[in-house]
Amino acid sequence: MVTTTEIWRWLEEVSDPEIPVLTVVDLGVIRSVETDGKNAHIVITPTYSGCPAMKMIEDQIIEKLKEKGVVNCTVALTLAPAWTTDWISQEGRNKLREYGIAPPENEPDKTVLFAKPTVVPCPKCGSSNTRMISLFGSTACKAHYQCNDCLEPYDYFKCLK
């Protein structure tokens, strides 16, 4: 008999293809897990509309569960409610920082126009004396920043809500 608790634990062994330091559970893209004790049904949601990693995440989940003995696993994609960076776990945020990616800051972000760029502390030295280089970074979910003190260039996992 397989339980949902077990499946959740196994999913913590599946890492995000683009930010391998995070598991798909840390990232908050797993929306639900169901099982009748033998088969599993898992619902995932994309981070961004065009996220190219979704197919790979789906394949990796099926692969992982097969490895654990769940032969019949289906994965469905849902768009609502829309993913937000609020769903990244606290542990995920710590892992990001250690990995050198600044985790999402709590941005008010309601007045998009004319707003000053968010202050994002440097993940290397902790300084808040940093600057935004570009609103778009190496993947859709990141912006590009640089520390003015230690000069470290780094990715910022930008706030999406």
Partner: peptide, 8 residues
């Protein structure tokens, strides 16, 4: 659902 996602 698509609108909510795309708006962000």
């Amino acid at each position: 659902a698509i609108a909510e996602k795309s708006l962000k």
